[in-house]
Design a protein around this nucleic acid. Structure first.
Lengths: 208, 208
DNA sequence: CCTTGTGAATATGTTCACAGCA
DNA sequence: TGCTGTGAACATATTCACAAGG
């Protein structure tokens, strides 16, 4: 198994899903699984799982399947999850607060090291043990903690300027909850989470 | 322009994004736009926008472009956004509360008509004018309000049973924040929002 | 000119189906 | 036998490039 072209982004996007399913299987004390079992759980074809994994190595054994702890280990390595990541949150509104309180980030290796806002009334309040700081402190703090990942939870109008500051301070990945398309250098990855758009997508299919 | 095959789902998923951009343009008092301008704003090729829209009709004028209010109207109609939708939230933890407080749902035509949880301590508390009710009341309330859309914000273990109850009560679309793949009848649409998976996707690309 | 709508060409993604090995 | 890994076949999605109309 060798191939020059980088693995497709869509494949990278499925690895976290596989990881999730593998974690659940481990919790159930399984040692071994197969592309068929994984596929069944995830509603994905077994062939797709095998082909996806084959981009990164030969992780399975013919006739047997995949050793769960080993495969988890490998996927974590591929996704660079074998160390913790520092993350900041921009915006301390309802979304920012929910993110700060979300325990899964810590559990999966992401440490919230700062929350920033421009509203003086919010500065100094503590969320989940982290003090809200003024956004003017953001660039310094991002550099000090070598933060590479940010979550933007500001109003739409504030998102682009905040993103620019984050990028200038060294951030390389942004998860944005603001409903606008951000303009960023090509080496910075962005992902958008837009619940309203997701609902609007589904209404198309609902019969009246 | 005629075509038998239904428009691809991926195209439906982009319509809300187009709507968002058109709304922004309208706010800036533009009357007319082009596939080029839209594409520029959204980081999408103009050809893709034209082809996407062509699945539903001839909305533009050669040499001129698209009339913004007209195109907004048309897309809203396609996505069935020309009336309001009743929505329930399952789970009154941090995520459920953030969703309940999120003003955009109301602004874009989605009315939160109920929030449900199983924790006795939460029952009766009010969020954004909506009382949290016990989950045992959920099926009745969903039927009473003819709810077709639900957002699930429960722990992973509770998500599938909740989804089953929702579907039994008539829900046709589920936006799930629980990190598991739900098993549902084919006429029920699901979308997942999983911030941890999104972060894990992006870490792949971050150079150390 | 400018911009749409669209076949044709290309690129990307998924599934099939099976050789090969435990 | 039971499962992986993978070329080949197929299906889907995107871009090209241009005729036609304002």
């Amino acid at each position: 198994m060798t191939q020059k072209p980088p693995p497709p982004d869509i494949v990278i996007g499925r690895l976290p899903i596989y990881l999730r399913a593998l974690d659940a299987l481990r919790q159930e004390n399984s040692e071994i699984t197969s592309s068929y079992e994984l596929g069944e759980r995830l509603g994905i074809s077994s062939a797709q799982i095998r082909k996806d994994l084959s981009h990164f190595g030969d992780f399975g054994k013919q006739g047997t399947g995949y050793h769960i702890p080993y495969l988890i280990e490998q996927i974590q390595q591929i996704l660079k999850l074998n160390h913790r990541w520092a993350v900041v949150i921009v915006g301390a509104g309802h979304v920012g607060l929910a993110l700060a309180n979300y325990r899964d980030f810590n559990q999966y290796g992401f440490d919230i090291v700062g929350i920033f806002d421009t509203d003086p009334a919010k500065i100094g309040t503590e969320i989940n043990g982290i003090a809200v700081q003024h956004e003017s402190r953001m660039v310094d703090e991002v550099q000090r903690h070598k933060v590479r990942i940010a979550m933007i939870a500001t109003p739409a109008a504030a998102a682009q300027p905040s993103a620019d500051k984050l990028v200038a301070a060294g951030v390389k990945a942004i998860l944005s909850y603001a409903p606008i398309t951000l303009n960023l250098p090509p080496d910075v990855k962005v992902q958008y989470i837009d619940p309203v758009a997701r609902l609007q997508h589904m209404t198309y299919y609902i019969q009246e």
